[in-house]
């Protein structure tokens, strides 16, 4: 299974631990890239979040954990049988508080890590936009005059507030999902079902934000 190194890591490993999958030495900081569970029934691959879907789609891994935002952005052909209710966040349109409107005389310019979803969202509202693909620190782009707005993931909204920006629209709500290679699903169906059945009771009943305790007031499925 491909495990993301980013924000989903802690909650994902907690679900695995509660499901009885113990990985000696498993840590986000480790330089090792593979870990086997103590019962040898599961091997995890430590992979960057954005690479989880190619690994699963191209059979490098039977399963993976990845956010819905990336699934929809990348449009990969994978199955997605379980919402893990972790890593809750929203993909939003945000802009500077002092400039809430649209520019005149030119198309709206948006800085984002999600060009496909951004374009779809604005086109569905009849707006043609220029997309500036960036990989981080999006809040800087409007400040430096490179973009009018940004489209980014927001969990608590703290980063936006600290940069004098506000949420202006919501594109989607994202949580971490279990994805499965579409060939592994029939060929290893029993093993995958057994794995899903083991972790199912350990999934929070309601979506939780990364870093918040999964058991705090949410209960389990």
């Amino acid at each position: 299974m491909a495990l993301p190194k980013g924000k989903l890591f802690d909650d994902a490993t907690e679900i695995l631990r509660l499901g009885g999958y113990v990985f000696p030495g498993l840590s986000c900081e480790s330089r090792r890239l593979t870990f086997d569970s103590m019962d040898s029934s599961l091997r995890v691959l430590m992979i960057r979040g954005a690479d989880i879907l190619p690994y699963v789609e191209h059979g490098g891994s039977d399963m993976g954990i990845v956010g819905l935002d990336l699934i929809l952005e990348q449009g990969r052909n994978v199955l997605e049988p379980l919402d893990l209710n972790i890593g809750l966040c929203r993909l939003v349109v945000a802009g500077p508080k002092e400039r809430p409107g649209l520019p005149t005389g030119r198309p709206l310019r948006i800085a984002t890590k999600y060009p496909k979803l951004t374009e779809q969202f604005f086109l569905s509202r009849g707006l043609s936009v220029e997309i500036l693909k960036l990989y981080g620190s999006l809040e800087l782009a409007p400040k430096m005059g490179m973009a009018d707005k940004i489209v980014d993931l927001v969990a608590t909204g703290r980063t936006l507030r600290e940069n004098q920006m506000e949420v202006q629209d919501e594109i989607l709500v994202s949580t971490g999902r279990m994805v499965v290679n579409r060939s592994s699903w029939p060929l290893k169906n029993r093993a995958i079902r057994t794995f899903l059945d083991r972790i199912l009771p350990c999934i929070p009943k309601a979506p939780v934000i990364s870093g918040e305790s999964m058991s705090r007031g949410t209960g389990r499925r």
């Binding site: 789609e57 191209h58 059979g59 052909n77 290679n181 579409r182 060939s183 592994s184 029939p186 060929l187």
Partner: peptide
């Protein structure tokens, strides 16, 4: 049709 070793149909 799927087969062992293939990641797609």
């Amino acid at each position: 049709i799927y087969s062992s070793g293939a990641y797609q149909e």
